[in-house]
């Protein structure tokens, strides 16, 4: 839509609509000020530390783990759709001769003007940023951050490489690699619900932490082998004042890794096709 379409009566209409929405939202938020109901959140706060040391992860991956699974899917689908629009997986009907899709070419990156000294420092920066992303995902059970953040940091490393080095990106992710890790990440996240589902019938039940199997009405006991597999590798020693308290985040660190892979795969793939384009013949060669 061009700006000139907004001149005249349409523009007036749009402005009036925006004004109404603006007033409505403002009035609503003013009314809400001081009247916000707390609802269920005190209950979550009371339980969060039993779940794991990082409350944010407790929320995102444990209370609402399935919710985040689908959110992750939005990123995955975003990547698949963006890449499809550029050219990966366009389909034609066998019987119908339609117009051929327009071939997409890569962006014309002019990197000749980048300072050589600056370039010298960019390679270490890219490597260290990628390592920083990995540090974030390994510490996700205990400190702020997690899969999304890791993915975004690594993707920014990739983008910096593309901006400064053009086609000779040091972090030279291949298309198949990105599609593979994106898919692996989402599949890992989805399938981590399977152990809990098989034992209790609840998908994404955190078999490593297991808070609820002592409550009446819970369908099953968690076998100790599942505790060991999903709880112990990431068992943490939380030293509290009264003594030592051992805690584990269960499947949450693993979910974080799946999430990170998915986000890296998806976002880097979007960058890749928007910068370098997509061509099936190139893909076949690689």
């Amino acid at each position: 839509m061009e700006m000139k379409e907004l001149r005249g009566s349409r523009g007036v209409l749009a402005a009036v609509a925006l004004l109404i929405i603006f007033i409505g939202v403002t009035v609503a938020f003013v009314q809400l000020n001081g009247n916000v109901a707390r609802g269920i959140s005190p209950e979550y706060n009371r339980l969060a530390h039993l779940q794991q040391p990082n409350s944010l992860s407790a929320w995102v991956y444990d209370w609402r783990g399935f919710d985040t699974l689908i959110e992750t899917g939005v990123i995955y689908v975003g990547a698949v759709v963006s890449v499809l629009v550029i050219g990966r997986g366009l389909v034609r009907m066998k019987q119908v001769e339609g117009e051929e899709p327009v071939p997409q070419t890569s962006l014309d990156l002019k990197i000749g003007s980048v300072n050589a000294i600056l370039k010298y420092f960019i390679f270490p920066l890219v490597i260290l940023l990628a390592a920083y992303g990995i540090l974030i995902v390994t510490g996700a059970a205990t400190s702020g951050g997690g899969g999304f953040q890791c993915g975004v940091v690594v993707a920014s490393a990739y983008l910096i490489g593309a901006v400064f080095f053009g086609k000779k990106n040091p972090l030279n992710f291949r298309r198949k690699f990105l599609i593979a890790i994106g898919s692996f990440g989402w599949a890992l996240y989805a399938l981590l619900g399977l152990p809990g589902y098989l034992v209790t019938g609840y998908w994404q039940y955190n078999v490593g932490t297991d808070l609820w199997s002592s409550i009446a009405g819970f369908p099953a006991q968690i076998p100790s082998i599942l505790h060991t597999i999903f709880g112990d590798p990431y068992r943490l020693a939380l030293v509290l004042k009264g003594g030592t308290f051992y805690s584990t985040a269960g499947i949450v660190p693993l979910i974080n890794i799946g999430e990170a892979f998915n986000v890296i795969g998806a976002i880097c793939l979007i960058f890749l096709v928007f910068i370098y384009g997509w061509s099936d013949t190139e893909e076949a060669k690689a």
Partner: peptide, 18 residues
Amino acid sequence: QWFTGQPGVTPGGTYTFD
């Protein structure tokens, strides 16, 4: 289906899977 297997909280403060 109560995903992630977290129970409901009754007004009395106990947990239920019913």
